[in-house]
Structures are given as C-alpha cells and as structure tokens.
C-alpha cells in the first residue's frame, strides 16, 4: 500500500477533476469519497507505479457506475449559485458556472477525455489506460469534445458544419 502521504498528496487533484467532471461541489465530494473508498478496498491490487493514474481509473469506474444508475433530477442549489466567488480572470469574462454548464453539455465520455488531457494533463496513453479504451478512441473523443466545447462557448451550441478537407 502506498504511503499515506502519497495518497493524501493526490486528493487535491482528484477533487479538481471530480469538480470539473460533475459540475457540482457536493457531487464532487461524493465522487472523491466513493473513489477513495473503492481504492482503499482494492489496495491489494495496487502495484507500484503511477498512483495518480490508478486513482483516476478508480474514479472513472465509480463515475461510470453512477451514470448507469437511473438518472434522476436533483435540484440545483440556487443559493450556492449566487455564492460562487468571482475571481480575477486573465483569459476572459467566462464565469465558472458558464464553464460548468458548457461541460455538462458534453457527453460524459467526451468530458472525461477533455478533462484528463486538458486539465489533468495526462498523456494520451495514460488517458486510454485510465478509461480502458484504445488510443484511437481517445483521439476521436478529444477532437469531438474540443470542437463541441468551442461551438458551445461560441454561443451556438450546435455542431459546426463539417469542413471539407481536401
């Protein structure tokens, strides 16, 4: 079993990923906790190696299981919406909630790839291993996710016309 401090050191990253993946602080809380529980139950399967990727794999499995469960509408917390802190932004005026909403419109499997590559900075191979899919699938999902996010952020939400190449 990895040293406790090694696990502790990974939790902030897990929280960041979970927060972006779920779009919600409470959901992220649950997801991280479920992931740690699952990981702690499977330490015997752990082999020295990339702890972060291993934990992200656990989180992917938990996330997918949750998606498979019957989807139910949960009310948003309006008070928390209002309480989102406004931070100085270098890049543009985009609010956190706008980004949350944009990400929520991506299919979950595309969102995972986009975040593992774009936020967690995993290599394509690591991403493929975490998600248990071929590298080619990672690339196609990444490409679709980026195109769709671009369209959503540009305000139209619809897929762009396919460009004819050659």
């Amino acid at each position: 079993m990895p040293a406790e401090h090694a696990i502790l050191a990974e939790i902030p990253r897990l929280r960041r990923y979970a927060r972006a993946l779920t779009g919600n602080a409470a959901e992220a809380d649950d997801l991280v906790q479920d992931t740690l529980e699952r990981a702690l139950g499977k330490w015997t399967l752990w082999r020295p190696g990339n702890l972060r990727a291993w934990l992200l794999t656990m989180m992917h499995n938990v996330f997918v299981n949750q998606l498979r469960a019957r989807p139910v509408l949960v009310m948003a917390d309006e008070d928390e919406l209002a309480a989102i802190p406004v931070r100085p932004r270098q890049h543009d005026e985009l609010e956190l909630r706008d980004l949350d909403r944009a990400l929520a419109r991506l299919p979950p499997e595309q969102r995972e790839v986009l975040l593992l590559v774009g936020l967690e900075e995993l290599s394509y191979d690591e991403t493929a291993r975490v998600l248990g899919v071929p590298a080619g699938t990672v690339m196609s999902r990444l490409s679709r996710a980026r195109e769709k996010l671009r369209a959503i952020l540009a305000g139209d939400g619809k897929p762009q016309h396919l460009k004819v190449i050659k």
Binding site: N24, A25, N65, V72, V74, A76
Partner: peptide, 19 residues
C-alpha cells in the same frame, strides 16, 4: 467555506436517495 457551488441545471445521481 467552499463556495464553489452546485451549478448546471441538473446532475445525474444514483437512484436510491433521489426520490
């Protein structure tokens, strides 16, 4: 004081507690 809020219009939840 974690105020990163619950955002987005809806979230998928596992079934048991949701109703």
């Amino acid at each position: 004081g974690v105020t990163l809020g619950s955002v987005g219009d809806r979230f998928w939840r596992p079934a048991p507690d949701s109703t």
